[in-house]
Amino acid sequence: MWSSRKAIISAVVLVALFFVLRHTTSSQSQPLDVEIPTPDPQAPTRPYPPSQAAGAAKQRQPEQQILHDIASKPLRKKLEYYFSYDIEAKFPGYIWQTWKVGPSSGAFDEHLRPLEASWTEKHPGFVHEVITDLAAEHLIRYLFASVPEVPEAYSAMPVPVLKADFFRYLILLARGGIYSDIDTEALKSAVDWLPPRVDRSAVGLVVGIEADPDRKDWADWYSRRIQFCQWTIQAKAGHPVLRDIVARITEKTLDLKAKGQLRHGRAPTDVSIVEFTGPAVWTDTIFDYFNNRDYFEFDSKSENITAQDFFNVKEHKKVGDVVVLPITSFSPGVGQMGAGEPDDPMAFVKHVFDGSWKPEDERMQSM
């Protein structure tokens, strides 16, 4: 009986995975997005020539001459090779979410249905996939088969919350599009997240501010003075920020594994989840990118971009190829830190913050 049940589950997972990969493969050549050719009259706060950006189209040797050598390259070089970045591409029309079962299952939580449905309703031309926990394991192994360190790290993570955080970076790195937690509601289509004045061919990553606490005891409540949200992210595949955070998490995970510090069902004791895979490391990675001379031009007067540059942001702020949205965009209605209400013109996604429906020992919980 148990063998039959396992066979049925495996078959269901493989069928689901087949449709996910078929959708992503067939859609990748024609991403679903709206081109807005109007140039941005506002100069970015960091000079960013696309021709010099890591991940922009590069001259490569014939593939046959270098494939045999790729396996010996450092992790970051392999990620750069297999997941290249084209800033001028359209944002892929994919919406990725995760949950323990799919919406077609009777076990799908009823109060999550209108939230999940809002993404399809607001994005009728997009491919919207809710990836189950079991299918996520197979999907990561498939997408990162050429970089085996990544699926090894993913499988080694001892608690679901770590895998949930890691998955969002991985799927966006490999396929691009939008990742959003299952407890979020789409208030406006992503087509309207950027104003007409912003040239989308010069944007590769869209993030929102999660926390901007103007109080002396901010460190008692948040990990960073300015903290970027990671429950909703829009990106083009291969973006350098995604490559960097995937490399950081992979290296940290494999280091802990080698030291015997990862125990199934127990969170690591020497690093918090927020710092390991959550908004703290996500925020650090974005700031490191803003100040990386490999991607941006610096002159003698250039200063590092810091949290202070994002205090009390009320509109879109473009830094190189990254657009930072104000706290209202992904956190409307929180009643603090200057966030507007859900009917604010800048409110795009509402996060319900309903932690009760995803206990840590049962579900890929987000922090």
Results as ranks from 00 to 15, higher is better:
188 K>R: 15
188 K>E: 15
189 S>Y: 04
189 S>Q: 11
190 A>E: 09
191 V>L: 14
191 V>Y: 10
196 P>V: 09
196 P>K: 13
196 P>M: 11
199 D>G: 09
199 D>N: 15
199 D>W: 13
199 D>C: 14
199 D>Q: 14
200 R>D: 13
202 A>I: 06
203 V>N: 06
203 V>D: 05
204 G>C: 12
204 G>H: 09
204 G>N: 12
205 L>M: 13
205 L>C: 11
206 V>N: 08
206 V>G: 08
206 V>A: 08
209 I>L: 10
209 I>T: 06
210 E>N: 10
210 E>V: 02
211 A>E: 07
211 A>Y: 04
211 A>S: 13
214 D>E: 15
214 D>G: 11
215 R>M: 10
215 R>W: 07
218 W>K: 14
222 Y>G: 01
223 S>I: 00
227 Q>P: 00
229 C>R: 02
229 C>N: 15
230 Q>S: 11
230 Q>H: 08
230 Q>P: 01
231 W>L: 07
231 W>R: 04
233 I>A: 05
236 K>E: 13
238 G>R: 10
239 H>L: 13
239 H>M: 15
239 H>N: 14
242 L>E: 13
242 L>R: 11
242 L>Q: 11
243 R>N: 14
243 R>W: 06
244 D>N: 14
245 I>H: 09
245 I>F: 10
246 V>F: 11
247 A>D: 12
248 R>D: 09
248 R>N: 13
248 R>F: 12
249 I>E: 05
249 I>F: 10
251 E>D: 12
252 K>T: 09
253 T>W: 05
253 T>Y: 03
254 L>M: 04
254 L>A: 02
254 L>R: 08
255 D>W: 02
255 D>Q: 09
256 L>F: 01
256 L>E: 02
256 L>N: 00
257 K>N: 04
258 A>I: 00
259 K>P: 04
259 K>G: 01
259 K>A: 08
259 K>S: 03
259 K>Q: 10
261 Q>C: 03
261 Q>P: 02
262 L>Q: 02
262 L>T: 00
262 L>I: 00
262 L>V: 02
263 R>L: 05
263 R>F: 00
265 G>L: 04
265 G>N: 04
266 R>H: 09
266 R>S: 08
267 A>S: 14
268 P>L: 00
268 P>I: 01
268 P>N: 03
269 T>A: 14
269 T>P: 05
269 T>V: 10
270 D>C: 13
270 D>K: 12
270 D>P: 07
272 S>K: 07
272 S>G: 07
275 E>F: 07
276 F>S: 00
277 T>L: 04
278 G>N: 00
278 G>I: 01
278 G>P: 00
278 G>C: 03
279 P>K: 03
280 A>I: 00
281 V>S: 09
282 W>M: 05
282 W>F: 15
283 T>P: 01
283 T>W: 02
285 T>G: 05
286 I>T: 03
286 I>D: 05
287 F>D: 03
287 F>A: 03
287 F>Q: 01
287 F>I: 01
288 D>C: 08
289 Y>R: 07
289 Y>A: 03
289 Y>M: 06
290 F>T: 03
290 F>N: 04
291 N>P: 10
291 N>M: 03
292 N>K: 07
292 N>T: 04
293 R>G: 14
294 D>V: 06
294 D>F: 14
295 Y>E: 14
296 F>V: 02
298 F>Y: 15
298 F>E: 11
298 F>T: 05
298 F>H: 13
299 D>A: 11
300 S>D: 15
300 S>I: 10
302 S>N: 10
303 E>V: 12
304 N>Q: 13
